[in-house]
Design a protein around this nucleic acid. Structure first.
Lengths: 127, 127
DNA sequence: TGAGTATATTGACATCCTTCAATATACTTG
DNA sequence: CAAGTATATTGAAGGATGTCAATATACTCA
């Protein structure tokens, strides 16, 4: 009689690769998921797009005027993007000017690309 | 007296680029956001990773064994990934085998990269 | 046909996310 | 300091998302 391991206990044979495991661990998966999550919102994407357009700084009232949400919502998304390190701001008098953190954006892009390539092209080159 | 347009009405001058607008419209932003959203979950990332590893098909029981969530949850995420077109499945007898849709993954990757490059490198080349 | 296994679906619950009105804070200008 | 404007924060409401127990469905084998 064969001892069943915890892994295989309760599963019949015949279909299974009992040693299958993700190459990304839970922590890395969570980190990557957070990276993607901060981008996964139409307002935030549009904000990033506008900030990237005007490499010089952009004041909040312009963003507000160009977006289909109210001022507190714009402020909310700006805060999330700032907490994620993707943008930063600078106060000039009455106005606050936001700008993209290109280094952070580039790092995020690199992380996503690494993962994506590992995902899509590990065993075959093309569909 | 100067007529105020709808755009500039209610805003003072002095800080503003009144003609600022996102290059991505609401629809495209929503689509991109959906693309990112389907990836923005640790379980789904790990599922995609495992499916990409074994290019041959993988049965659900293996996924279930390797993931820290229960069977209905695995099934739920598989359904979302399938609805997004990123994976598909095939029944063989009692078991259902899932596999990556490499073409769809490649297309998604391309869409994200396009946007990302437009975002990060429109006016300057490096941080 | 009936018992058993693999996967899917349903329904409920908790948590997070988005949004906004109301309010607070920061700053300028008179 | 007072009044006015720009932005941030708070608190609440509604919707979306993730999870699981229970159950249903699909299939195999005796």
């Amino acid at each position: 009689m064969i001892e069943l391991t915890e892994q295989t206990k309760g599963r019949t044979a015949g279909c299974c690769n009992p040693d299958l495991a993700p190459r990304i661990g839970p922590d890395e998966a969570q980190q990557l998921s957070d990276d993607l999550g901060i981008l996964a919102n139409p307002i935030r994407l549009q904000i990033l797009d506008m900030l990237a357009q005007r490499d010089g700084h952009v004041c909040v009232c312009d963003l507000e005027a160009a977006l289909p949400v109210k001022q507190p919502t714009v402020s909310h998304h700006l805060r999330l993007l700032r907490a994620a390190g993707l943008i930063d701001c600078e106060r000039r008098g009455l106005w606050v000017y936001y700008f993209v953190q290109r280094a952070a954006l580039a790092a995020l892009r690199a992380r996503l690309l690494d993962r994506f390539d590992a995902l899509g092209y590990s065993t075959e080159q093309h569909a």
